[in-house]
Design a protein around this nucleic acid. Structure first.
Lengths: 134, 134
DNA sequence: TTTGACCTTACCATGGTGTTAAGGTCTAGC
DNA sequence: GCTAGACCTTAACACCATGGTAAGGTCAAA
């Protein structure tokens, strides 16, 4: 059970890249890893769990700074779930805001595109609209 | 009609910041502006129109590189509207992809948040889920 | 011993904007 | 004519997360 992985294997096991793992360590997101005599980083299964945690949080769009907080809460048996939920809700509302911003763009843009023939003629409503004062 | 604006006024008139305007000029998005003897940039109404064009395209989420193409097409009376529409459709599909990515995150995250009491106890499904292997 | 896959650090690039610094210019009021 | 303050200039750095490259050290198998 004391299987130790070098960074490439840890990357494969966690779904991150070696580059990201080093970066996270430098940012302080991960503690400095133990090294071999020749300087290679070594990862045990606990470390791999942390890396997976980070990847899954990144997949949900959390910032590295949020993830730092989430990791600290994860490791803190005295945590209040309130704190975790607060971070999640905050992120959720940013996601919602981003979605509605994008939907707004999408609506305007698809209306414009529908009114551009998209053929060989120079006439195009998209350009016309962009050129218009508000 | 030959009213010339310095960069601050041009910024106000276009809705951009002076910083952005200088940046766009440096990127080659805008031609190098004429200057006063003392080096101040001067903008005429045609320049202001271009700046507004850029702002409106930014508001629709186009990248500066897309905007460069759009500006060239705008200035080209021989353009084919096909080319404009192609850029718009491409951007539109990126917007759609981004929206569905965000919606996916939103769904998972809100499910998780619903199952986290968010009180004083340490128990929290959000952390549990992040800690789980896929 | 050599090869090739792995590891190390250090630096630069991306995209779009903001910030700061250190300085020059213009204009209005005295 | 001088000064204050608002404007302008360039330059360099920060943000965020990641990718890429370079130049070199290490390891294992052939």
């Amino acid at each position: 059970m004391l299987e130790l992985l070098t960074i490439g294997a840890a990357a494969k096991a966690s779904g991150l890249t070696a580059k990201m793992i080093r970066h996270y360590e430098q940012l302080g997101l991960l503690r400095k890893m133990p090294r071999t005599e020749s300087g290679y980083r070594l990862y045990n299964s606990e470390h791999i769990d942390q890396l997976r945690f980070i990847r899954q949080a990144r997949n949900l769009g959390f910032s590295l700074s949020d993830i730092q907080s989430l990791l600290e809460l994860w490791h803190d048996s005295q945590r209040e779930s309130r704190a975790v939920k607060q971070i999640a809700e905050q992120h959720l509302s940013e996601i919602k805001a981003k979605i509605s911003e994008l939907k707004h763009m999408q609506q305007i843009l698809s209306d414009l595109a529908d009114n551009c023939r998209g053929d060989g003629s120079p006439d195009c409503n998209i350009l016309k609209q962009l050129a218009k004062p508000d």
